[in-house]
């Protein structure tokens, strides 16, 4: 395959970036998108140019590091996959592919396609944990949890923190991420105890980090590689409204 790549290049967080065009040849359609970028970087190194910086780690869709905004969509055109799971067969010979970093006030660009996602860590630190040591795994039937609740909690727990929801959202809102984290902890008995405090603190951290407000466009869920459902955001809203009204703590 022969392609034209338009890639965002930016030296560091202080400099202004720009789009650069790179023709590339010899791409196999069975290559993953990141392998295609590896080929591009090999070429750039041979030409004694600076290779394109990008985040990646597991390359199997579980770490959430790879973060590329490809042709106007986070993680490219396929549904339910991360950039590392995207293959070149999703593109045609002769295509032009535009590759940009996530864009959000809360995700500043570090270099090229690498953004700083520590705002997510700040949200997790605000309440995305259980304060007591839960010790060894207990006898499975000691705490009864309804299977449907367990399923819902696990469907939320599957969020890999990639940030595609923020990247896709026209408001750069992190509600889908936040709602997945709150749902997965609040729905289970171990997490329910601190539920109110958790939702108030995590929402506060979300807003302070500079993410926008959710306007229910649904873009996040449509682009989420783990297909986290919008019903989590409704559950979060419900929990937040209830906690604001009933919690005796002022957070």
């Amino acid at each position: 395959m022969k392609l034209t790549l338009k890639v965002w290049r930016q030296k560091n967080s202080k400099t202004r970036g720009r789009m650069e065009t790179y023709p590339i040849d010899g791409i196999d359609e069975d290559m993953s998108f990141l392998e295609m970028i590896d080929v591009l970087n090999q070429n750039l190194i041979k030409e004694k140019k600076d290779p394109v910086a990008f985040d990646h780690d597991c390359r199997e869709g579980i770490c959430g590091m790879c973060s590329m905004f490809i042709n106007g969509e986070p993680h490219g055109p396929e549904k339910g996959v991360t950039t590392c799971q995207l293959h070149m067969r999703s593109f045609k010979d002769g295509d032009t592919i535009v590759i940009e970093p996530w864009r959000a006030e809360a995700f500043p660009v570090i270099k090229d396609l690498v953004v700083d996602r520590s705002a997510f860590d700040t949200i997790i630190q605000a309440g995305g944990y259980i304060s007591v040591n839960t010790g060894n795994a207990m006898e499975a039937n000691a705490i009864p949890v309804d299977k449907s609740i367990a399923n819902e909690a696990m469907n939320a727990a599957i969020c890999i923190g990639c940030g595609a929801c923020v990247a896709a959202c026209k408001n750069s809102s992190a509600m889908l991420f936040l709602s997945a984290k709150v749902s997965h902890l609040n729905m289970l008995p171990q997490g329910e105890v601190e539920g109110k405090r958790r939702v108030l603190k995590m929402m506060k951290a979300h807003d302070e980090a500079g993410f926008g407000s959710c306007t229910n466009t649904g873009a996040c869920s449509a682009e989420c590689p783990k297909e986290i459902s919008l019903s989590n955001i409704a559950r979060l809203n419900r929990a937040y409204i209830a906690a604001s009204l009933t919690s005796e703590e002022s957070i």
Binding site: W8, G72, E100, E105, K170, N171, S173, T217, A219, E223
Partner: peptide
């Protein structure tokens, strides 16, 4: 919400997801 994305995308395919 505009302030939450100071640098815009070159290509943004909103129609694909919303």
């Amino acid at each position: 919400n505009r302030k939450a994305r100071p640098v815009k995308y070159h290509s943004f395919k909103g129609g694909a997801n919303s």
